[in-house]
Design a protein around this nucleic acid. Structure first.
Lengths: 220, 220
DNA sequence: ACGAATCGTTGATTTACGTCAAAGTGACTT
DNA sequence: AAGTCACTTTGACGTAAATCAACGATTCGT
């Protein structure tokens, strides 16, 4: 169970201890909301399959997408500030999760330096990703942003043992645009443009990266 | 010493233990580089006075400013992923720091749940700030971004017991523009515009927020 | 299996902000 | 004190991407 949910380098002994605190969560359907803004943080969630988006609502009530979560990701770190979640998290498709009680995790991490390190690594990685993205969005054109988005997705899939060349975009174009600070129309236009240039083959939600090298060059 | 460097709610006993591992760092002069990208991470640094900027260099060698650090901030969390720093960090003015050896901190945090919680809180807060900023930059106009930047700075100064109404911008307009994804010219124009509207009084690096309410409204 | 709703594409037009250019202001050096 | 250099401001102009609009294509619910 623990290896399914937190597939990282932990010793058998550590894995066994983790198993005692991790629970399977009921499956989410598309559009189900897992986390509501302001809720007390009781669990972290590890994504086993499917995907989700996290977002906040601004003063006018419109969504600001902060993050997409894929299998292997752990959700909830940003709520540790004050023990309350700081965003909404919603399933983009049927999704399986594990739940990890915060309190038990904290106690366990006092005993297991490896686990402690692993948690720090996860948070640190997320922090780094978020800051990198910031830099990327600030200083790049729409095409570069989208190329970068696809490259990042691709390498995340690869890390999880899935195909890095072809995958399904579980989020809508509107979601992508929102996340990248672009309009839906721009996202659409650039996708067709990349396709006509032979870098991608797009068919609805399915994307095949036909020339990974050129895409990576565009993302720079 | 510990209270100076990590001024948070810790018991006297905890503070005492912290004191044993925290060292004073030599003062930095303006433009001194504290951290180089790729360096192994041995210490976290707490800012006692002054300020710094963190940035990465993109493929063309140009700066991408990721963060500004004020007194009370702790620098280095994003390097915990793999034990190497992921950015450069440079002093914007004469700056005093404490250094906190990572290894000792880790050992100590196994004993002290309060310290562990504090570290998580700091990282989580940074993560949240970074994600919030992302949303802000993606969906707002130049004026809103700048207003937001000033409001955020103001409240960070306030949290540290400094004036929230008037303060010195230790970074250049170019730095601000880089950070917010705007050109220098736009930053300058908007500052003069906000001044002519009576929201700010700008005099070189000195900013006075004359109408905090209106500024906050613009930041929304 | 059907209609309705959501999602995606494409085109025409507008605009906020970047770029280019040049001059003004302050701040470190000798 | 003078001169250099880095920073800031202001104006004219160009452009990337937003907005507006209308129409296909999928997906969803009954």
């Amino acid at each position: 169970m623990a290896t399914l949910c937190l597939p990282y380098q932990l010793s058998p002994e550590q894995t066994e201890k983790l198993d005692t605190i991790i629970q399977r969560h009921r499956p989410l359907q598309k559009r189900d909301v897992l986390i509501h803004n302001g809720e007390p943080l009781k669990f972290l969630y590890a994504v086993r399959s499917g995907s989700l988006k996290s977002y906040t609502l601004d003063s006018q009530g419109s969504e600001q997408i902060i993050d997409f979560h894929l299998p292997g990701d752990v959700i909830g770190f940003d709520g540790l500030i004050d023990g309350n979640h700081r965003s909404y998290t919603q399933a983009l498709e049927t999704t399986m999760l594990c739940e990890i009680p915060i309190q038990s995790l904290d106690q366990l991490s006092a005993e297991l330096p490896g686990l402690r390190k692993q948690m720090l690594r996860l948070m640190s990685g997320e922090l780094h990703a978020s800051k990198t993205l910031l830099g990327t969005l600030n200083h790049h054109s729409a095409q570069q942003r989208l190329a970068n988005f696809l490259v990042t997705l691709s390498s995340r899939f690869q890390q999880r043992g899935l195909s890095s060349r072809s995958f399904r975009l579980s989020m809508t174009r509107a979601d992508i645009g929102n996340y990248l600070g672009l309009s839906v129309e721009t996202v659409s236009r650039i996708l067709t443009q990349l396709q006509s240039e032979g870098v991608l083959a797009v068919q609805n939600k399915l994307v095949e990266i036909t020339e990974p090298e050129r895409l990576r060059a565009l993302a720079a």
